[in-house]
Amino acid sequence: MSHGHVNPIDHPEVQMASRRGYMTGFILASVLMALATFLVSSHALPPFALLLAIMACAGFAVIAQVYFLLHIDISEHNIWNTVALVAFIPLFVITIGLTWWMFSQLYLRTMPMIPGMPGMH
């Protein structure tokens, strides 16, 4: 509210945004999602390889979205974006990592073996 007299277009975070960046992010994320959908619906790979492939797609899509759409990087101009990144990485590692660990233990006990998965017996 106290920013009312300043043109919002002049803000550094707005100035950093570019149409090219948004388009790149949008196209990259869309292509990766389409690729994952195609891989799954056509059963192009054996199940475990499929799992790894769509996980890779998701990982790249996350990076594309975070970098191109949310402009989260480690530049000095936008210190709060860096803070957001620093807060995000441990949360990501904790949530995905612990989920991964939990499910690997759970699958050992409850699920049939996924074809192609190492370490299952």
């Binding site: 904790i94 612990l98 233990q105």
Partner: peptide, 21 residues
């Protein structure tokens, strides 16, 4: 708060190591 959510479903059967953590 981020590392305890699994205690809502201890009985799911993920085994002693995960449950202990």
């Amino acid at each position: 708060s981020w590392i305890v959510w699994l205690h809502h479903f201890f009985t799911m059967g993920m085994g002693p190591y995960v449950s202990t953590e």
